[in-house]
């Protein structure tokens, strides 16, 4: 009986490994693709060269696209996280009958197809006279990240032990102190995760940027989209590999931070 179970388990694990491998494989293929020497892309290039790395790193267009993406994604995630916190606090604490409605409202940008959010942002920017500037793009992108931020922060807020709060209040702490000294540190993990997730969502977002883009303001995904549609060279693979490297570095740093924190603060609750 347990042998069958083990075989079953082994098969399942093998299946998982296959699925995970298939998820990662196309990303790994980008690496050899980025090292091809010709102007057309191939999974395994016939000739190797670093020329496209030179081109992308030296190119003002790619650099400015990266800069614009960083700008809009940062602004968008600041908005998402702060608005998401307000929403999460409301979702978690509210006992009124309107709470499901509130939840639906906060999650609604996620439920609406992205292209409709893009169109909405486009209309918004023209009627506000913003004209497709980075502010409009940031606002639109923050809408996409808001539901995710709210969900993540809400999960983290729910994990805060009520008794700790009551203890703090009974010790004489005022609301603001409770918030700053108890809630915030314990929700910090959730808030940072929310920020990270909404940053990624905003950074990778294509549709809003396409609708609002102008030749002088292109975010990175738009630039990639243009490259894929106008000049399909290994430069696109290079950009992706560089982005993946940055994210890897971020993950490693985040992981190290987590590990260090765990070592230094043994017994607090985890979100």
């Amino acid at each position: 009986m347990s042998e069958r179970k083990d075989l079953g388990r082994a098969a399942q694990s093998a299946y998982l490994v296959v699925v995970l491998f298939l998820l990662i494989f196309p990303l790994l293929v980008l690496i050899p693709m980025s090292l091809g020497s010709s102007t057309t892309i191939a999974a395994i290039p016939q000739q190797w060269s670093l020329r496209w790395y030179d081109e992308v790193l030296g190119s003002p267009e790619w650099r400015s696209a990266f800069g614009w993406s960083m700008l809009t994604a940062t602004a968008a995630s600041i908005i998402s996280t702060s608005m998401g916190y307000l929403g999460a606090a409301a979702m978690v604490r509210s006992k009124s009958r309107l709470q499901p409605l509130l939840q639906i409202l906060i999650l609604s940008p996620m439920m609406v197809p992205a292209v409709v959010v893009a169109l909405a942002t486009y209309l918004l920017s023209t009627s506000l006279g913003l004209d497709g500037g980075w502010v409009a793009i940031s606002i639109g992108q923050s809408l996409l990240g808001l539901p995710v931020a709210a969900l993540v922060i809400a999960a983290s807020l729910r994990g805060i032990d009520e008794t700790l709060l009551r203890a703090a209040v009974s010790l004489g702490a005022r609301d603001r102190q409770v918030f700053l000294t108890v809630v915030l540190p314990m929700a910090l993990h959730g808030i940072l995760s929310a920020f990270g997730l909404s940053f990624l969502i905003a950074f990778d977002e294509v549709l809003i940027a396409i609708f609002l883009t102008t030749p002088s303001l292109q975010t990175l995904p738009v630039r990639i989209y243009q490259a894929v549609t106008y000049e399909l060279t290994p430069a696109v693979a290079v950009v992706s590999v560089l982005l993946m490297a940055i994210v890897c570095a971020g993950m490693i740093i985040g992981g190290l931070y987590n590990w260090a924190m765990k070592r230094m603060v043994p017994a607090t609750s985890q979100s």
């Binding site: 003002p60 267009e61 400015s64 614009w68 023209t126 006279g129 913003l130 004209d131 500037g133 102008t214 030749p215 002088s216 303001l217």
Partner: peptide, 19 residues
Amino acid sequence: LNPTRRSLLKASAIAFPTA
């Protein structure tokens, strides 16, 4: 679209030296 406001904003956007 309101032409006048757009052109003013566009002109100032061009002043940004990105491209």
